[in-house]
Design a protein around this nucleic acid. Sequence first.
DNA 1: TGTACATCAGTGAACGCGCGTTCACTGATGTAC
DNA 2: TGTACATCAGTGAACGCGCGTTCACTGATGTAC
Lengths: 238, 238
Amino acid sequence: VRVVETASAPAGAGTGGSPAVPGRRPRNARGEGGRLAEDIVAGALALIDRTGSEEAVTLRAVAREIGIAAPSIYAHFPDRDAIIMAAVLRIFGELVDAITTGADSAGPDPVDRLVAGCAAYLRFGLAHPARYGVLFAERRMTARDDDPAVPARPDRPGSPGPEVHEFGAEAFAQLVQAIRDCAEAGVSASTDPVADATAVWVALHGTVTLRTTLPGYPWPELGRFTRQLVVPLARITA
Amino acid sequence: VRVVETASAPAGAGTGGSPAVPGRRPRNARGEGGRLAEDIVAGALALIDRTGSEEAVTLRAVAREIGIAAPSIYAHFPDRDAIIMAAVLRIFGELVDAITTGADSAGPDPVDRLVAGCAAYLRFGLAHPARYGVLFAERRMTARDDDPAVPARPDRPGSPGPEVHEFGAEAFAQLVQAIRDCAEAGVSASTDPVADATAVWVALHGTVTLRTTLPGYPWPELGRFTRQLVVPLARITA
DNA sequence: TGTACATCAGTGAACGCGCGTTCACTGATGTAC
DNA sequence: TGTACATCAGTGAACGCGCGTTCACTGATGTAC
């Protein structure tokens, strides 16, 4: 199969507005140029989902995906990393929502809420392994700056932006609070909810990443496994 | 800094044998051509360590690294993936050795041995984050084969080779046995060492990957954290 | 009501790069006769 | 003891590719006068 440079069948082609050339996205009306920014992020997410890694999110691939010319991206994002960051923020929002929804779907019992939130975390990670992987992909490693084998990053340091930390902190704070609620209700022996939340978090993160990497391993049923991790690590006593 | 195609200062240049052209590796004696294969893997590992990801392991980068011409690699490895696989096997061997050495450095007490083995696992992962990351990097995701955005893999399926599974199984079996030893000594309430070993493993894996990804987080001291994870998950009672 | 103009939302061609891979080759070293 | 030859251990140039990025541009749409 030969892959041609121009998009052959972008998502959403044909819906709304009879594009002059098939496969080309109709241009936005004046003043609505910002919509393309959303489409670019959506295209990046689609590529991440389909290919399983953020490597595939190249400017040209995104442009093909949504039916525009590659240089059109520069009007909305300064470079590839900015697209990835926008995608990461969107995914973090989805994860936080999933956890909140999961916890709220449980009753008032604090242990149920804690376990439900953790189960929601795992379900999100396992349902969207590629998106989850991008969240915690090392943005660029701790390498010596003078190493010619490491392409220089002109402005951005190795760490994710502050917004990402905010989102991560929000999700983590939910977990800490859930453990604290258990302790205050007398059903957890935790005396250091932050430390115990850290332990729970690494276990959840390890579960998502290992299950994704080794799908052939005979993993136990998710609900049971969630309890197996969370109950002891959160020092649940009841 | 301009990067020129020819190697400028490969590791090991100048040691042993006055190469005609500086930066060029002296050729192996007849019958010892296999030594280049080892050098290629060593070069790949050096690139992984320096750059933090296996992405940097391109045929040309490896060739530059060890001072040979890129096509020379084909005499020893059919393609890039074969080099990565050889590196993965080597790293797995190092990890298994580290765990064994760690456990053996503890006394005869089964809990001490279990914790020491787990601590050795964490120490290895944190001391060599890039190598550890390559071990568990998704070799290529579960993506639809007909997706043009996913480059086709002609022969190899998405999963790692059988040798990798063997090594992983060996390391995992060590962990299962350590928990079983604790149970038989009456210091663990585990009735399903495999399930509990799985729980411990995901926690260890999550610790290595999260600590690597988020080095700025105030992680607790390693020894204490190891016990915090392993003792409850392995159902240690004593 | 015209019309010149500014702005918006992009396009298409081209550049230089590193990449995997191929091809024909080179030069040293061992071996058969 | 020679010498022709096979083999080994590579090299150097070239290909086509996708990539990020630049440049000058196009054509529709709103706005000032």
